[in-house]
Write a protein that binds this DNA or RNA. Structure first.
Lengths: 254, 254
DNA sequence: GGTAGCTGTTACTTGCCGTAACACGCAATT
DNA sequence: AATTGCGTGTTACGGCAAGTAACAGCTACC
């Protein structure tokens, strides 16, 4: 499986995924073509209904709830989603898109290294605070009865981690440092922020700004340590000049 | 809910949890008392059957499978576990115990700060590599239909993170540093190691030792950064002299 | 002996995912 | 104009797994 994910954080934060690959040239009937845009639109519509339903019913929504929210009966859903996890996956993508679209502009603004980290984390925490039920749905709901690779959480976390890998990798290479660890670090950092956010969302035992600050601190320390080990010292509060653009990430699942 | 967790890493790594709090003094019948040990033993026996069943069937085991593995029919299981998530929770505890028991001795050995970190992470990765199915079961299987606080993953991760909080907090206080961030950091670090391990388990794109080394590096950098910010510099390869004992952690869920 | 607490069983209900079967509407083909 | 393809939608059902009667036997306390 080779899922192409173009997360062009430089200009557009759209994450486009190839849709189902239904071969359109089977036999040249224009009627099939005619509906293609429509089907995509309806899928999106159902995904948004699912998001609303999750907001209402909480993370334990059923397909009937979602269908009801969309003002439609269940079999209609199944014309657009092969099964539950397909829909859930789409909801996950929706969330990831939202997150990316919010993070993207913060990366284009000027700012020091530490400030950029702060903004990313703050944005992330803002999103999960805004959509707590959706967040729980996407992150906590798993599918032990599915092959691991198709599990929504893993998938979306992987997408984000891969984007981050790309970003960190570009930095490292532009600084001529060994980039062997970036993949592991990316997944680790994503997991770290997610876990902290998870914990914070349940407890709310500190303000968002405080948590942002704490996380920013140790993440900066980690990065700084790696850089120093490579003989590079960067002032965390000095504006960055070189900003590699994050462009294409490929999911290298086999 | 106040779950008491005594994780005395200094001597014993046993994690004891209060069992069901069934009031034994309801009416003084000795027959109830007589069976208490027995019931605990059977619960444990079923948990181990579940662990075996998970090893065989993978993470998608059903109650029937587990019952079959235990050589018993389903209702018997339900006499010892209120429902599925109760059993799953117990399996999670089993795993956490295993992990703690393996980590504990490594903490008692001598070693530098970095070496200690390395050992903890290496041990963790070793465990999840040894029990991949169990790991997936515990970590990936979630319960959107349960209140968040009773979700196995959250629960076990919280247990570990709380232990770590305690450990880090003791260090910080003994060094007279501000310990305000340790809780967030603990949950974050646990999440980081877990996410990296998760990713590694799926891909195996590097050796265990390599991943251990990479994780150890950035975690050390993070810790080192926090210490330096507090005006303290520790040689990562110098043996540690003060080793606070990890003793009692209380789950401060309300 | 009666009873409380365990041992165990088979057969059932329940809930939710997913599907079969059926009917209608609109546009492209013929 | 009639047919055919692809969409719209429905109600009612099948199936699987969780969880629950309802029943029966065994041992030790009272």
């Amino acid at each position: 499986m080779l899922r192409q994910v173009t997360a062009t954080l430089g200009s557009v934060s759209q994450i486009s995924r190839p849709v189902k690959a239904k071969q359109s040239t089977g036999h040249g009937d224009a009627r099939r073509e005619r509906w293609r845009g429509h089907r995509q639109a309806r899928r999106a519509e159902f995904v948004e209904a699912a998001v609303r339903a999750i907001g209402n019913c909480g993370a334990e929504v059923g397909m009937d709830d979602i269908a009801a929210e969309a003002g439609v009966s269940k079999p209609v859903l199944y014309r657009h989603f092969s099964d539950k996890s397909d829909l859930y996956l789409a909801v996950g993508e929706w969330g990831t898109n939202l997150l990316m679209e919010r993070i993207s502009p913060t990366l284009q603004q000027e700012g020091s290294a530490r400030e950029r980290i702060r903004r990313i984390i703050g944005t992330y925490l803002g999103v999960i605070e805004e959509y707590p039920e959706l967040y729980r749905f996407v992150v906590r709901r798993n599918f032990a009865d599915r092959p691991v690779q198709t599990d929504p959480v893993t998938t979306e976390k992987t997408v984000i981690a891969n984007s981050l890998s790309r970003l960190l990798g570009e930095y490292m290479r532009s600084l001529e440092l060994d980039s062997g660890g970036v993949e592991a670090w990316s997944h680790g950092l994503v997991g770290m922020v997610q876990a902290s956010g998870d914990w914070w969302l349940d407890r709310h035992s500190m303000s968002r700004d405080d948590l942002t600050e704490y996380l920013t601190r140790i993440i900066w320390f980690a990065i700084d340590g790696v850089l120093r080990a490579g003989g590079i010292v960067i002032d965390p509060d000095e504006p960055l000049e070189t900003v590699p653009q994050l462009r294409v990430v490929e999911d290298d699942a086999d």
